[in-house]
């Protein structure tokens, strides 16, 4: 070890004022923490299986195994129907890993360090959520790319397709706050996964992802009609293969706002309490 002299604090100006103001500081901190999450993602590409291989397998299984039976033979028609639905399901499932990672970070004590630093309480969580954009983008690219290899065709146009991707990412970013909250509440990262599956499975199967709502029994239909996944799927279907969009879009946006309004404060509070 060298005897290099490390100078004492040489910060110019008021040490209590964040550089560039509180808001700029919070944005900077969140970006720095998002970068941290991205580095972790790049270091462990196998952690992307749930947004790459998994949706592909679902797509293959449902198209070739059940597709014929469900539509009476027309697999291509079923693929056109199924892909927007599976996209929505994959977005919801894609958020689970975030809660697991945050839970593991807290258990390991990595967050203790962040909590001893002068950053906004929300910054570590916001940073992690922002970095999740990459995962939702990956889902969209993989689904549309692999889907097109299987024969899926966008029937509307480039702009609606881009809008579908934008909405998908936006929905993913809102929905994942549930996972963040669960990640703060339960003890182990395994429990995060278990709890989130209990939530995501009924939401994705109790919807119009795999079959038309009209084929379902009445009591189930009432659940399907309030299910946010249903309306996300409706919107994406409209944007990718045509059909009415506005109604589903409005409800989807309302759900997104609602998810943020409820789960962001819940997650922050749970994070603050977790010692």
């Amino acid at each position: 070890m060298t005897t290099l002299d490390v100078p004492v604090r040489n910060i110019v100006g008021d040490i209590d004022k964040p550089r560039g103001g509180a808001l700029a500081a919070q944005v900077r901190h969140s970006v720095a923490l998002a970068r941290r999450s991205l580095i972790k993602t790049i270091r462990t590409p196998e952690a992307l299986i749930d947004v790459t291989l998994q949706p592909i397998i679902f797509l293959l299984i449902f198209t070739y195994l059940f597709g014929g039976a469900i539509t009476g033979g027309d697999r291509h028609a079923y693929l056109q129907f199924l892909l927007p639905g599976l996209l929505a399901q994959s977005l919801a499932m894609g958020g689970i890993a975030l809660g697991q990672n945050l839970n593991a970070d807290i258990e390991k004590g990595v967050f203790d360090r962040f909590r001893s630093l002068p950053v906004a309480r929300s910054a570590p969580l916001v940073g992690a959520v922002v970095a999740d954009i990459v995962r939702y983008m990956t889902v969209c690219v993989v689904m549309l790319g692999f889907g097109s290899v299987m024969g899926f065709r966008v029937e509307t146009g480039l702009l609606p397709a881009l809008a579908a991707v934008g909405l998908s990412i936006g929905f993913g970013l809102c929905f994942c706050w549930i996972s963040v909250w669960v990640g703060m509440m339960v003890r182990t990262s395994g429990a995060v996964q278990g709890t989130m599956f209990l939530l995501v499975m009924p939401l994705s199967f109790g919807s119009n992802v795999f079959v038309e709502t009209s084929t379902l029994p009445g009591w189930l239909q009432s659940f399907v009609h309030v299910n946010p996944i249903t309306h996300l799927v409706g919107t994406i279907r409209g944007l990718l293969v045509g059909g009415p969009v506005q109604f589903h879009l409005l409800i989807t946006l309302a759900w997104m706002a609602g998810l943020l309004a409820v789960f962001v404060p819940l997650a922050l509070r749970a994070y603050g309490r977790r010692a």
């Binding site: 972790k40 270091r43 990595v110 203790d112 360090r113």
Partner: peptide
């Protein structure tokens, strides 16, 4: 307070992937 302190906890809190 956080602007004036440094903490090394009992259990290593370095980020292993970084």
């Amino acid at each position: 307070v956080r602007r004036r302190i440094g903490l090394t906890g009992q259990y290593a809190s370095v980020d292993e992937d970084l």
